[in-house]
């Protein structure tokens, strides 16, 4: 691993690309017919104890990006450094120690929990795999601690996940992610399948855990209102590209990219008078396929202000101010 100088960030990403090759049926062998450009030249940092929200429509590459950070996908190109260490090309033992520090919480807690294990076994498994505890007492104490942390009653320890509600399962998923004391957690749509009242409980829990345990989050969601609630900064993704990134209050109060503007104007506000008076931008059409993204700016086919230039030039990420960057040729 190369040491690269960088003390402010727990995680830095530079020039990240991830493509999935697509094969058609050939006569004698699989024929490579193209690539899905799931992530295309993405760059960002995440600070210590910071939450970076990642928003974008389905298929924009959010999950793939999260998986790349956790080393669950091989990068096509680019550099990811974690705590100042470049871990783009690391070996198995380095990967194992990294796994302790980086965890993931999924959208569907049920699909990610082994139905044949009790809750304490589920939470305890990583402790055993990584030899975190040496005695049975230590193990029990840690399990109890984790239950308390996520607000689950310890009396449920010997129950199975199917006996739990959606919200409780998500707490369980979070407890499992916390077991090894990670510094960084990718939360991939963690509240998307939960009802409003339960969703609020889980969001509060995640915020609470961050301040108690100094964890950094990449918080992935297609729900911009949820992301606003939890994120210090937010990144907006479209067809594998970041189009805008900045402090939450700036991006939400002064969205610069036409896509961000349209996205925000599409989110209804639970306030009838305000909502009916709002000016909305309704985008035409649907996102193009990532196998064949448009030339120039990837958003130009749906952009209300695109002109000829936009089909020729790939807009670079440009600083609007110290805490707000945007990739659009028409924003000055």
């Amino acid at each position: 691993m190369n040491k690269i100088k960088n003390t402010e960030y727990i995680l830095s990403v530079k020039g990240l690309k991830k493509s999935f090759p697509i094969y058609g049926r050939g006569v004698f062998f699989k024929k490579h017919i193209g690539d899905i450009h799931a992530i295309n030249d993405v760059e960002f940092n995440i600070g210590y104890s910071e939450t970076l929200g990642l928003v974008g429509e389905s298929g924009s590459g959010k999950t793939t990006l999260g998986r790349c950070l956790l080393h669950l996908e091989k990068l096509t190109e680019g550099i990811i450094s974690f705590k100042e260490l470049d871990f783009t090309n690391i070996n198995i033992s380095q990967l194992n120690s990294l796994r302790k520090e980086m965890q993931i919480v999924f959208q569907d807690p049920y699909a990610s929990l082994n139905p044949r294990m009790t809750c304490s076994q589920i939470i305890g498994e990583p402790l055993k795999v990584h030899n975190i505890v040496s005695t049975k007492e230590e193990y029990e104490i840690r399990i109890k601690e984790l239950f308390d942390l996520v607000g689950l009653n310890h009396s449920m320890a010997n129950r199975y996940p199917h006996e739990f509600s959606g919200g409780q399962r998500q707490r369980l998923g979070i407890a499992r992610a916390l077991a090894l004391n990670p510094n960084f957690i990718v939360c991939d749509e963690p509240v998307s399948s939960l009802d409003v009242s339960i969703q609020a409980q889980i969001i509060n829990l995640l915020i609470d855990l961050q301040s108690k345990l100094n964890i950094s989050y990449l918080f992935i969601s297609h729900d911009l209102a949820v992301v606003r609630q939890i994120s210090h900064r937010v990144a907006v993704m479209y067809l594998g590209k970041l189009v805008e990134i900045g402090d939450s209050d700036q991006v939400y109060s002064n969205p610069l990219h036409p896509y961000t503007q349209a996205l925000l104007s599409s989110i209804p506000i639970p306030d009838p008078i305000k909502e009916k008076k709002r000016k909305r931008i309704i985008l035409k059409g649907e996102p193009p396929h990532p196998m064949d993204p448009p030339s120039g700016c990837v958003f130009r086919t749906r952009c209300p202000i695109a002109d000829e230039e936009c089909s020729r030039i790939i807009p670079p990420m440009v600083k609007h101010n110290d805490n707000h960057e945007v990739a659009c040729l028409k924003v000055s």
């Binding site: 609470d208 729900d223 609630q229 305000k274």
Partner: peptide, 13 residues
């Protein structure tokens, strides 16, 4: 309980 894109952000929902 519902998070919103307008108004002040509450510390906790």
């Amino acid at each position: 309980a519902v998070p919103r894109i307008d108004g002040d952000i509450k510390k906790q929902l």
